[in-house]
Design a protein around this nucleic acid. Structure first.
Length: 512
RNA sequence: GCCGCCAUGGCGCAGUGGUAGCGCAGGGGCCUUUUAAGCCCAGGGUCGCAGGUUCGAAUCCUGCUGGCGGCACCA
């Protein structure tokens, strides 16, 4: 035996050794255990469908390929359940057939082996569609025992760390990720149909702007400069509006150096779309259409469930201002209090909402909304009129205390965020300078100043609407997933000891 | 980062102070239509890691590692 010692205990080592021995015996007999080509003529599901209607009747010839999930043998007859992406088909070998050695061949397979099977379609006495074998080809010997024969993997850590085991032992897990892809396709289709142009902007950015979040930092050796993984794509897409594109969007991975939770992943998929000459109402319509398209792409049997019960994602969604929502919950007369931020701070304290003693009225309003209102909103609901203090990139509304912005809230969570984009370069410069001031005062979540972006605005950006949608959360919603890790194939986990010690890649002499 | 819960053969689990068991998987055997097939036999474990308490620790205590949940940060 060569190769690395198998991980795990003695029993596992013995199982692996036994399987390797089988593979070697086969190879010595001239039967390769890996690397053989095989072209199926039907999927397992198609073959099952084409099986003859009557028991023990022989039908068409067929070739299928798949993984052996279960084996049963009964003296002179052997059965195997063969599974491919489409479903499962039973394989059958009988001593009564001329190829009676197939009974032993089939029985000697191990669970997890991948085979190509050729024979005639039939149906057993109990009515099970089956392939009566005339030839069996081993395509890939499995050296490790299957994690789970019937139920899927239960151990959550294993499911995330070794997702392939989760996927192969539980078809419903594969279905979730297939639906994820369908949702993203539906989003693309909806935007493409509206003449949006899909673009790609830098993931590595010298100045990480466009959102309030702490970035990941990395270093590019060739230019000997620090770069940041993007926290948003906003500032680049707006530059494209300056450049004359009128409808652009990007769906891509975005990175935020923040805590992990069932709703937060350090890398997540963000959709951002910008449309020149669009007002906030148009963005609401776009938002509704995108959410409805996503829901239609992954239809749940029992509808979309939230902690507050079943909800409909059928447009149109209602709107309410943040001030209305806070007033309804607390009874506070915000107009009366607004000029006295210290009174607002007091009221917040009374409501057990913690804010800085010198917080402005807008900041306090937002804090009360976030902590007391948003978590209890079932939605879907557009929350509008955000305080200017928490919206440095949005255009002022008719009431200059607020900006033209909405968030779509579903199940107590922010699903989308949109605003009428600020295109006043003088105001934008002032607001970004304020952000930069906060940042240098130690607030890592505030945005650094981006001179090039402001300069782009100085060339003139058309008035525009913009929207951002958290795609992972949208997928969670429409698939009923409870954790964001359940909709990310390989979620970020702490490296196990021994991992995460890659060393300095720049030392590699073969680095390009 | 803080708090709580969890970690027992490959997988799923039982075992709350007396030295570890069950089902599946794996090995040997029986069985000519099975469906998570069935039946018989024999295996497989330093109970996550390291200390401590005790005559005796899977079990109690401490630390560490990893996971989950909550808080904080945020989408």
């Amino acid at each position: 035996m060569t190769g690395p010692p198998p991980s795990g205990g003695k029993a596992l080592a013995e199982i692996i050794a036994e399987r390797r021995r089988k593979a070697e015996l086969l190879q010595q007999a001239g039967t390769p255990a890996w690397g053989v080509d095989f072209s199926p003529s039907l999927t397992c599901a198609q073959a099952a469908e084409q099986a003859p209607g009557e028991p023990e009747q022989l039908g068409d010839e067929a070739r299928v390929a798949g993984r052996i999930l279960r084996l049963r043998s009964s003296g002179g007859i052997a059965f195997a359940d063969c599974s491919d992406a489409s479903g499962t088909l039973q394989l059958l070998a009988s001593r009564d057939d001329p190829e009676n050695d197939l009974v032993d061949q089939l029985a000697e397979l191990d669970l997890g082996d991948i085979v190509g099977a050729e024979g005639r379609l039939t149906r057993t006495r109990r009515g099970e569609p089956s392939l009566r074998l005339v030839r069996l080809t081993l395509l890939a010997k499995s050296l490790r025992p299957p994690a789970a024969k019937t139920r899927g993997l239960v151990n959550v850590e294993q499911r995330y760390r070794r997702r392939y085991l989760d996927l192969l032992s539980d078809p419903s897990q594969r279905e979730i990720f297939r639906q994820r892809t369908e949702v993203i396709r539906a989003l693309r289709r909806a935007l493409d149909e509206r003449s949006y142009l899909e673009v790609e902007t830098p993931v590595l950015q010298p100045i990480p702007g466009g959102g309030a979040a702490r970035p990941f930092r990395t270093h590019y050796h060739s230019l000997d400069s620090d770069l940041y993984l993007r926290i948003a794509v906003e500032l680049y897409l707006k530059r494209l509006l300056v450049g004359g594109f009128e409808r652009v969007y990007e769906i891509g991975r975005t990175f935020r150096n923040e805590g992990l939770s069932p709703r937060h992943s350090p890398e997540f998929t963000l959709l951002e779309a910008y449309q020149a000459y669009a007002d906030l109402g148009s963005m609401k319509e776009l938002c509704q259409d995108l959410v409805a398209a996503a829901a239609a792409a992954a239809p749940l049997a029992d509808g979309v469930q939230t902690e507050q019960g079943a909800i409909s994602l059928e447009p149109p969604f209602p709107s309410q201002t943040m001030s209305q929502l806070v007033h309804q919950l607390t009874g506070l007369d915000l107009d009366l209090l607004w000029e006295k931020p210290e009174r607002m701070v007091e009221e917040a304290g009374r409501l057990s909402v913690e804010v800085a003693a010198d917080a402005s009225s807008g900041t306090v309003l937002y804090a009360i909304y976030e902590q007391l209102v948003e978590p209890n909103l079932s939605g879907p609901l557009f929350v509008t009129d955000f305080p200017v203090e928490v919206s440095p990139l949005a255009r002022l509304g008719p009431d200059p205390r607020f900006v033209e912005r909405f968030e779509l809230v579903v199940a107590g969570r922010e699903l989308a965020n949109a605003f009428a984009e600020l295109n006043d370069p003088i105001d934008q410069r002032r607001r970004l300078q304020e952000q930069a001031r906060l940042r240098s005062a130690g607030d890592f979540d505030s945005q650094p100043f981006d001179e090039d972006f402001v300069e782009a605005l100085e060339h003139g950006m058309p008035p525009a609407g913009g929207i951002g949608i958290g795609v992972d959360r949208l997928v969670m919603l429409v698939t009923g997933a409870q954790s964001i890790r359940d909709v990310i194939l390989f979620p970020t986990l702490r490296p196990q000891s021994g991992e995460g010690q890659v060393g300095e890649e720049a030392q590699s002499p073969s680095a390009p």
